[in-house]
Amino acid sequence: MSDKNVMSVESLILHYRTVRGAVRAVDGVSFALPKGKTIAVVGESGCGKTSLASAITAILPVNVERYEGSVFLEDGVDVTKMSEDERRQKIRWNVISTVFQGAMNALNPVYEVGYQVAEPLIVHKKMKKEDAMDEAKNALSLVGLPSDFLKRYPHQLSGGMKQRVMIAMALVLRPKIVILDEPTSALDVITQANIMNLLKKLKWDLNLSYIFITHDLALASELADIVAVMYAGRIVERASSEKFFTRPEHPYSQKLMQSVPTLRSKKELEYIPGAPPDLIYPPPGCRFHPRCPYAMDVCKEKVPELRELNPDHVVYCWLHQ
C-alpha cells in the first residue's frame, strides 16, 4: 500500500445467511483511501453500501456466511485478519469510527447523551469519568451543541441534534478514518446543509479521512475527492470526483447522473428502468446487464474486468475492453 493511502480495501467479501439463501451484500469491493481525502461510495438502496461499513470494521452479524478480503491500514495491518480483541481495543473507534444513519436508533435510550459520547474515552483511554465528561463537552461544542446537552437523553433530542451527537461521539478519540453511513438521510434540507458544512470543517480541522456512504449523488459531490459507484455488492466505477462528475463512463453511473436535477443546465430527467438486483441470486456476468441499455452478449456471461482509463479513473464494463 502506498504511503499516501490511509486505508486500502482489497476484494472485500461479506455474505449473510438468510432463510432464502446467502445474501451477497459485499461481493469483491476494492478501493484505496488517500490520507485526508474523502471517498464517496454511491449506490441505490439495497446495493450493499451499509454492509460495506460493517465489513470494513469487521463487525460481523450472527448469520455471517462468508467474510474474506483485506482491509489494510497505514502500518500495514489487515483489519480482517486481526483477532477480535485486537480489533476492539486498537482499531475500532481509535483508528476507524463510524457515524451512523440518523434514521437509526443509534443512541442507547437509557443513558445520557454526554455519557455515550464520553464512553469511548472511559473504555479505551481509561479516563476518569469527570475528565471524560469534560472532553465530551468539548466534543459537543465542536459540533455546535451547548454543554447542557450532556445530561439529556436521546429521546429528548431532534434528528439534527442526534446526528450532531453521533458526529461528536465519532470524533472523540480523534480517529484517522471516519465512515459516514448516510449521515444526513432523515434530515430536512437545511439541517442537511448544516451537517455537511460541519463535516467539511471537521475534516479540515482534524485532518480526517472520510468514507462517505450515500445514495445521494448531489450530496456526494459536495464532499467527495474520489467517487466509487457500487452496484449489487460490487464497485462498477471509481474515479476522482473531477473526472467522474465531468464524464462518468459506466452506463450505471451515467444513468445516475441523468436522474439528478442540476441547477444550471436544462436537462430531461431520466430514470433507471428495472428493479435493483436480488443480492441472493444476482444476475450472471455483469450484474447491471438486465438494466443496461448497451448490454451485449458477453455482459450476460462474463464478469467485467478492471479497466484503467486513467490513473485515477477505473471502470468495470465490457464497453471499455
Binding site: T98, F100, A106, L107, N108, P120, V123
Partner: peptide
C-alpha cells in the same frame, strides 16, 4: 441499532 453502534465503538 445502538447495539451495533456499541460494537463499532469497540466496547468489550
Amino acid at each position: 441499532d445502538y447495539v451495533t453502534v456499541g460494537k463499532a465503538k469497540g466496547l468489550p
